[in-house]
Write a protein that binds this DNA or RNA. Structure first.
Length: 129
DNA sequence: CGCGTGACTTGTA
DNA sequence: TTACAAGCCACGC
């Protein structure tokens, strides 16, 4: 068991996006909680909205740590619209993720991919000042 | 402090 | 369209 539960590194978050009291992982969770039912976001988007544009990998890591909690981790896909978890890894949660998405009405294409143009969630229009 | 690794992304061929 | 390389950041050794 790798101790991924602890991830307390705090850094300055951009104002107006998220409260400054959140830890790195919690900031990801906060963004992921924005995703409504039947929608998805990419790791990169979550990272960007959390104020860490280059920490997409950490998002997945954070998700593993929170799996089982109230964070809709299954609504996070990679930039290609597919589940990043390899079948069999992490207790075969790849299957669980897919089932959860499908139960929300998210359809997978023949390539096991989701049409991001259709299901990608944009939290809000890019701040027009 | 350096090196390898990872539920990633983007650019190039 | 797929395949490969580079960039990225935090963690463990």
């Amino acid at each position: 068991m790798r101790s991924v539960e602890k991830a307390p590194s705090r850094r300055a978050l951009p104002k107006g996006v998220l409260p400054p009291d959140l830890t790195e992982y919690e900031s990801y969770y906060a963004v992921i909680r924005w995703i409504p039912r039947g929608r998805v976001m990419t790791y990169g988007d979550v990272a960007r909205w959390a104020g860490r544009p280059n920490s997409a990998r950490r998002v997945g890591y954070a998700l593993f740590a929170v799996k089982g909690s109230s964070v809709p981790w299954w609504r996070v896909l990679n930039a290609r619209g597919e589940i990043s978890v390899r079948p069999g890894a992490f207790g075969d949660c790849e299957t669980e993720q897919r089932l959860r998405l499908q139960s929300e009405g998210v359809e997978f294409g023949p390539d096991d991919r989701v049409d991001l143009d259709r299901y990608l969630y944009r939290p809000r229009p890019r701040r027009a000042g």
